[in-house]
Every structure is written in structure tokens, then in C-alpha cells.
């Protein structure tokens, strides 16, 4: 119970504080950076920045035919665990109750057993992503600490959540404490690595779209 109290209290407060400070720091520092004005004449096919940004976001939702065969599994797998994670985080009642307590908003939940099944699919999908990274020599070579650690801090909350729900190995309060601590670890690390794509994915894609469109790429 002491572990759970520590996790629900000081650990979570500290993690949320670091998370907010880190995310604001990353966003402010990014947007205040000097941006070199591109003075070159744009392509005749150049679209407005907004239109290019939207088109790029949509275009990247599915692989181009030239790469389809090589990337389709990775892409589908990516969708599976991203949607899986989102459903688990936002539609399990204990999670909704957490958000309600935090920000005052709540919404309907899904039955626990449905979330449980989605969690298992998500775990398999995350393991598949890791196996692909390990088995592809090129990907393995370019992987850094950030890649491995980001995977780990994403995986831990899911696996500890499932173990806690299943009452495996230890008492529920211990498992729940470990689950919350794993979420704290995720929140602390999130702003400082590639997981910052939580906030920046569409920002970077928009920028890429505007840039490519200026150069005349067909979006």
C-alpha cells in the first residue's frame, strides 16, 4: 500500500510537473527558433502553406505505392498499437475517472473485458514493432537509446496494467503502484525524446508539406 500511495501521490505529481514543464519548454523553444526565410521563387505548382500542410498530413496516412510492399506491415502495425494505446488510455473507466478528477471532463467507458482484449492486441503489436527493429539490420544500426527507451516506457504501462488487472505475480495494490510508476516514467521521459511526437507529429508534417510544395512536389 505504501508503494501505491507513493505512486498516486508524490511520484505522479512530480511526473506531471516534469511533463508539463518539458512539453512547454520543447514547444516554446521550437517555435521561437529563428526560421530562415526561403527567398527562392516557389514552384509554379506551389500551394498555399495551409493547403500543403493538410495534404501532407493526409498523404502520410498511407504509404505511396512505391514503398507499399516494404512498409505496409510496419504501417498497419503502427496503426494497431497507436489506436490500441489511445483506446486503452481514454476508454478504460479507471483512466476516465483519473482524467475527470484531473481536468473535470468525462465520457462513456468501454467494458473492461473489451479493453483487456485490446491491451493484448496492443502488447503483441508493440512486441512486433520491437522484433522488426531488432531483425532489420539497417534499422538496428540507426537505432539509438531514444528508440529503445521510448519503446520501453510505452510498453511498461501496458504490460503492468494488464498484469495488475489479471492479478498476476503480486498483490493488486503493488501491481497498481508499479503501473502508475511506469506511467510516471513515461510522462517524465516523453518531452525529451521522440515520444514528443505526441504533440509535434502534425506540426512537423505540416512544415514538411509546405517545404515540399514550395519545391514543386506533387502532394
Amino acid at each position: 500500500m505504501e508503494l501505491l500511495e507513493f505512486a498516486r501521490g508524490p511520484a505522479l505529481t512530480f511526473a506531471i510537473t516534469v511533463f508539463i514543464a518539458g512539453v512547454v519548454f520543447r514547444i516554446v523553444s521550437l517555435f521561437l527558433l529563428w526560421r530562415t526565410k526561403d527567398s527562392s521563387a516557389g514552384s509554379s505548382r506551389e500551394r498555399s502553406a495551409f493547403s500543403a500542410a493538410i495534404r501532407e498530413i493526409i498523404r502520410r496516412l498511407w504509404p505511396q505505392s512505391a514503398y507499399k510492399q516494404r512498409t505496409l506491415f510496419m504501417l498497419i502495425n503502427g496503426y494497431v498499437f497507436h489506436f490500441g494505446l489511445a483506446i486503452i488510455v481514454f476508454f478504460l473507466l479507471p483512466h476516465i475517472v483519473f482524467f475527470k478528477d484531473l481536468v473535470g471532463l468525462s465520457w462513456p467507458s468501454l467494458p473492461n473485458n473489451v479493453i483487456y482484449a485490446i491491451s493484448i492486441i496492443t502488447i503483441v503489436s508493440l512486441i512486433a514493432a520491437l522484433v522488426m527493429r531488432l531483425s532489420n539490420p539497417a534499422q538496428r544500426i540507426i537505432s539509438t537509446f531514444d528508440d529503445w527507451f521510448s519503446w520501453l516506457v510505452t510498453f511498461l504501462p501496458v504490460i503492468t496494467g494488464v498484469i495488475a488487472t489479471s492479478h498476476l505475480g503480486a498483490r493488486y495494490e503493488t501491481l497498481l503502484g508499479l503501473h502508475i510508476l511506469s506511467v510516471a516514467l513515461l510522462l517524465i521521459y516523453l518531452p525529451f525524446g521522440k515520444l514528443m511526437h505526441w504533440f509535434l507529429v502534425f506540426v512537423t508534417r505540416s512544415q514538411t508539406g509546405a517545404h515540399l510544395s514550395h519545391r514543386g512536389a506533387q502532394l
Partner: peptide, 11 residues
């Protein structure tokens, strides 16, 4: 306070 909420005021 439900068990899955943070203890105290995490914000």
C-alpha cells in the same frame, strides 16, 4: 475519491 485518481493535487 476513486482509487485510480491521483492522491492530493497533482496539478
Amino acid at each position: 475519491k476513486p482509487l485510480s485518481t491521483a492522491k492530493g493535487d497533482p496539478l
